Amino acid sequence: MNSVTDLRLPLPADSLDTRPQPVSGRWAVMLRRWKTRRVLLTLDDAQLRDIGMTRLQARREGDKPFWRG
């Protein structure tokens, strides 16, 4: 028998929510690393002094890939 079956499943209305869901777990950690490292590269010298980092330390941390802790 070669036919396509028309299968209809009832879906609750809330299952159709297409809003982005918050990222959690390992992906959340990697996303946070990526964002904070990008920001770290934009800080000026006074801001880096405030957080106790040198320009070289900021560059080394900012250049790391997001998957590396």
Score class of each variant (00 low, 15 high):
M1I: 05
V4P: 01
T5C: 04
D6W: 03
P10N: 15
P10H: 15
L11I: 14
L11G: 05
L11D: 06
P12S: 15
A13S: 06
D14F: 11
S15P: 00
S15D: 14
L16D: 09
L16W: 07
L16Q: 09
T18S: 13
R19L: 11
Q21N: 03
P22C: 04
V23S: 09
S24P: 00
S24C: 03
R26M: 04
R26Q: 08
W27R: 14
W27C: 03
V29Q: 02
V29F: 00
L31Q: 01
W34Q: 02
W34F: 07
T36R: 14
T36C: 08
R37Q: 11
R38W: 02
R38F: 02
V39E: 14
L40D: 04
L40R: 06
L43G: 01
D44K: 12
D44W: 11
D44S: 07
Q47W: 06
L48S: 10
D50I: 03
I51P: 00
G52N: 04
M53W: 14
T54H: 04
L56G: 06
Q57V: 06
Q57H: 09
A58C: 01
R59Y: 10
R60F: 05
E61F: 03
K64G: 01
P65Q: 11
F66M: 04
W67R: 05
R68T: 07
G69A: 07
